[in-house]
Every structure is written in structure tokens, then in C-alpha cells.
Simulated assay, not measured.
Amino acid sequence: MVDVAVVTGAGRGLGAAIADRLARRGMHVVVTDKDEVAARSTVDNLPGQGTAFRLEVTDPEANRVVARHAVGIGSLRVWVCNAGVLFTGGVDEITDEEVRRQVEVNLLGVIYGCRTALEVMRDGELLCLASLAAHGPVPGLAVYAATKAAVLSFCHSVNVEMRAAGRGVRVRALCPDATDTAMVRQVAGSPSSAMLFTGTRLLRAGDVADAAVGMLDSPRAVRTLPAWRGVLLRTSALVPRLAERAVPLLCKYGERRRRQLQ
């Protein structure tokens, strides 16, 4: 029986790169995106078998339709919760709709996807894309960071639940730094995105996809890219007074780099 993987938000960028890596492993990839045309384009470029589906991840029943399709093809082995949205700005500056959309897509979309997969998956892998922002204070991205921290907590808890229940499902979370994708580029014109540019460079989608799919062969439940950035953010979260002084300086550095990239 053919092994099947579902990837959400795979019409472009990181999701498309992950779908490509899974197809190279011989899996039939169900490529989902709210933009069905983009999903079909990804499928057309896969080095293997795939199916395109329009999916709004915030709709629980729509997730179930995709799951039923996946198990109709073969054995559902991997479900990747990659779909996400990003709006930058002070927490009192972004709109109510931008708050709602980030919470619904970035958090509820992951929860609904994982719950759906667990309804039909006997054993396999749930892989959720969190973010470096999950580890500490990220001014200008407070709501986004909150959703990603919640995703990371959710993955930890569900992974323990699976072990306690004796189920053969493992839950993984990948926390990459800012990646050179359309989602990041579309907010790069705003000074409120400065924290996205405080690393040595934007990560490449292909490199992040390699790390994501590589977690399927690893016992690690969480991986941060790059690891040293995760250490810095976690330290700042543990020492709030240090963060209050250091993070604004980091933002100034990020703003200089942001302007250079324009």
C-alpha cells in the first residue's frame, strides 16, 4: 500500500518545498492550500505522485474531507501542519481581523489538522511548523509569536498523550528563524518586521524543508533553526529585565538590515 502525506499551505514557499521532499521519498503527497490553483502548480512540479486540494485549515470538516481522501489513496503516514499567516505591528496597532486570522490559521488550523489526522492515522508522524518566535519576546510580532508558542506547547502535550496511550503517532515541532518566503517578504517593508531580520541571514526554504522532513528520521520532538538563536531567545524569556534592555537594541540592528534588503 502506498504511503500518503498531507501538507497544508503547500501552494508555495516552505510548504511546496516540504511536499517536494516527501514526494522524493516515494510518498503520494496530498497538497493543500486555500489557493487551489497554487496547490495544483505544486503537484505539477512534484517529482512523484500528488493530489491538489483546496483547504481552509480553520474549517474542521474541510480537514476531515482531506483526511478521508488521503486514506482512500493509501496509508496516511505523515500530516504536516505548515499553513500560516503573518501580520506585523504593535499589539495595539494591528487590526482585529489580523489578530483573529493569525489565531485561527496559525493555532486552530494546527489543532484541527492534528485532531483530524489522529481520527484516521493508526501510526505515523504529525509535523507542525512553529517558529523561533515561539521561544521568547518578539516585539512587532506579539500575536504571531503567541500563536507559535501555543503550537509548540500543543505539540509537547499531544506527544506525551500519544506515548501514554501507547499509540504509534509521534508529534514533532520545527521552530525555524525567518525564512526567505513570500510571507516574510510581504511584511519586509514595515519597520515593525525588524525582528525578522536580526539573524545572520534569512533561511532558505529548501534548507528548512530538509530539516523538517529530516525530523521524520529522528527521535527529536523539537528542533530550532539555528539552535543558537533559540538559546538566545529562551534566555531572554527567562530574564525579563535583560530582554527589556537587549531586545530593543536587537530591533535596531534588525531595522538596519531590513533597510539594506529593500
Rank of each mutant, 00 (worst) to 15 (best):
D3G: 04
V7C: 01
T8L: 10
G9C: 02
G13L: 05
A19M: 03
D20C: 15
L22D: 03
R24D: 13
G26P: 14
H28Y: 04
V29Q: 01
V31H: 02
A38C: 07
A39V: 01
L46G: 09
G48N: 08
R54Y: 11
R54Q: 15
N63E: 11
A67D: 07
S75M: 06
N82F: 12
A83E: 01
A83S: 05
L86K: 01
V91M: 15
T95C: 13
Q102Y: 01
N106G: 03
L107N: 03
L108G: 06
V110R: 01
M121I: 05
G124A: 12
L126N: 04
L127G: 04
C128Y: 03
L132I: 11
L132W: 03
P139S: 10
L141A: 04
V143H: 08
A145Q: 00
F154I: 13
H156P: 00
S157D: 09
A164R: 15
A164D: 15
R167L: 14
R167Q: 13
A173K: 02
T181W: 07
R185W: 11
Q186P: 00
A188T: 08
S190W: 09
A194S: 15
A194Q: 07
L196Q: 05
G206C: 13
D207K: 07
D207G: 11
V208D: 01
D210P: 05
A211P: 03
L216P: 02
R223W: 13
T224G: 07
G230D: 06
G230M: 09
P240H: 06
L242R: 12
A243W: 02
V247F: 13
L250C: 12
C251K: 02
K252D: 12
R256N: 10
L261I: 12
Q262V: 12
